[in-house]
Amino acid sequence: MALRLLGLVGLLVVGFALSLSVSEYALRLLNLAAIAGISVIGLNFAFGYVGLISLGHAAFMGLGAYILAILTTQAGWSPWLASVPAILGTGLCAAAIGFPLLRLKGHYLALATLGLNVSFVIVAANWIELTGGTNGIAKIPGLSIAGYALSGEQPFLWFALVILACLGFVASLIQSSRHGRAMMAVRDDETAAAMTGINVTAIKVAAFALSALYAAVAGCLFATHVNFVSPDDFGFAQSITFLSMLIVGGEGTIVGAILGATLLTFLPEWLRVLGDSYLAFFGLMMLGILIFLPTGIIGLFDRWRRRAPAPETAAAEVAQP
């Protein structure tokens, strides 16, 4: 508990220090990283803990962002109020979809969620009356706290960091709770988990819905940060990016999710100096990371510390009979 609070405070301190010392451009990227980080912590529930491969995470982020965008621009709601149905609605939607879909595993689930994401984009691009079609929705109002508008990159970053820290903290509480151990038990051996009395379907649906809730929070932040959403922002490529962030950071860990989100947000921007070939190098570097750091950045730290079993695996082993 103390360690977790320390991590939370550490994140806020580092983030706050960065927010005072870096350029506007870096601040923007930090905001993007924080938003992606929230989304990836969510994905960690589904993939990191339960092992559900989701290639549709961006669709949930998009659903949240679109509900907020529609309610604020067409019904005139405040973004705070609109974020409630945006987040809860997305979570419910994920639970409803997850219930039939999560019987699938491995690449079957991967392709089913991919299909969902593609379908989401088709609907968002063609339901013009509601979503504005491919032109998207512009002029989404930004957030303000007690009359103070979070319009600049810096105040927005402070806000995003607080949300990131809180949601990270909640995630770590869930991880070490009975439910978190049940999730990992389901990942490691479904049959065994079922035999110990864990309701496998309920755990899977819960993790999936939880991941969608986090994605929706990220979506609401995205919409209020950029003030614009369009179907392109939530394509399946974005889902693959989220999954890559989790793998690169280190699956199954919250710190890994944040590190991965940060690294993959900054990497293509750093590579811009290479000119036209920067994306070609980006692909190669990704492949290199996957080959040489199979357990992600966190795995690298663990290897440094020479501490053999990572805490999560140990926890999972305990939960198994």
């Binding site: 350029s23 506007e24 451009y25 923007r28 950029v226 392109d232 920067y278």
Partner: peptide, 21 residues
Amino acid sequence: IEDTGTSNSTAVSAFVKLVQD
């Protein structure tokens, strides 16, 4: 010249980078 790629987000980053740098 900075690349805006295929995504809106990259386009915004490119613009902010230019303004900054």
